[in-house]
Amino acid sequence: MLAPTGWSGRFWARTECSFDGAGKGSCTTGDCGTGGMECKGNGAAPPATLAEFTLAGPASAKDYYDVSLVDGYNLPMMVDARGGAGGCASTGCVADLSRRCPSELRVGDACRSACEAFGKPEFCCSGAYANPTTCRPSVYSQMFKSACPQSYSYAFDDSTSTFTCSGADYTITFCPESAPR
């Protein structure tokens, strides 16, 4: 896919999908709620591992990218930056978090976030917890972070999880070989 300058968006995988001959259906994880194969601009329903991008635009010469577990985890993912300048790093989560997922977060082979599971402001970084001073990592986000140290584990996990690069081509790999399933 060739994205235009200044584009911002997310990529994710949908799993356990079932579609009929007319393209109608749904997926167990990452479903986008359209009832069809195309998401038509809709986002992923949690739990879903996300690759997030903001490509350089008029106000910035840098691309920003990350792999996020804030909306849960449904499969391992890597983002590789190639050919760019400015310390372009690979990032992602190759660990199989479905094997480490606590029972209270487990949904089949996926792992919900604590926000999705419990809906409490302290897990969702909302209300009184909607800033980096009051929103702290939970025991659940720390579990995600220990398994995938370069991935977002909660809303304000910027310092170790946001990467920048200029002029790179990006490759997203779902289920890299190093992650047993």
Rank of each mutant, 00 (worst) to 15 (best):
A45Q: 04
S90D: 02
L69C: 12
G6C: 06
G35I: 07
A155C: 06
Y140R: 07
L97Y: 14
F156R: 04
F174H: 05
C88V: 05
A85E: 13
G57I: 08
A168G: 15
Y152D: 08
V79G: 02
S103T: 04
C124H: 03
T164A: 12
Y170F: 12
A56F: 01
K145N: 05
P137R: 11
E16F: 10
A168I: 13
D20T: 09
T29Q: 03
G119S: 08
G108R: 00
Y73M: 05
A179Q: 06
P176H: 00
Q142M: 15
A110V: 02
L97Q: 09
R99Q: 11
I172N: 01
D63I: 08
T134M: 14
W7H: 08
S161A: 12
C125E: 03
S141D: 03
G9Q: 11
R106E: 02
V107F: 00
E52C: 09
G72I: 11
S141V: 08
N74S: 12
E38F: 10
N42H: 12
L50I: 09
P4G: 13
S68M: 08
C175I: 04
G87M: 00
A168C: 15
S68L: 06
V79T: 07
L75V: 08
W12R: 13
C115N: 03
T34N: 02
T34L: 04
T29R: 03
A155E: 11
A117K: 00
D63W: 12
T28G: 01
F156N: 04
G83M: 00
Q150R: 14
V67C: 06
D158S: 06
G119W: 06
V70E: 13
S138L: 02
A45F: 03
P46D: 15
Y64T: 15
P132L: 02
K40M: 15
G83W: 03
Y64I: 14
D66P: 10
M78D: 12
D109Q: 08
A51M: 11
C148Y: 00
V107G: 01
T5E: 12
T164L: 15
R10C: 10
S18Y: 11
T5C: 11
G33I: 08
A81K: 10
S98P: 05
A128K: 10
Y140T: 12
D109G: 06
S113T: 02
G108E: 01
D109F: 08
N74G: 04
F19E: 05
A117T: 02
A114E: 14
T171N: 03
G25S: 07
D71K: 11
F11K: 07
R112G: 06
S153K: 06
A179P: 13
F19H: 07
K24C: 01
A56C: 08
R181H: 11
G92A: 06
R10A: 02
F163C: 12
S18N: 12
I172A: 01
V70Y: 07
W7G: 07
C101V: 04
S26M: 05
G87W: 00
C101F: 01
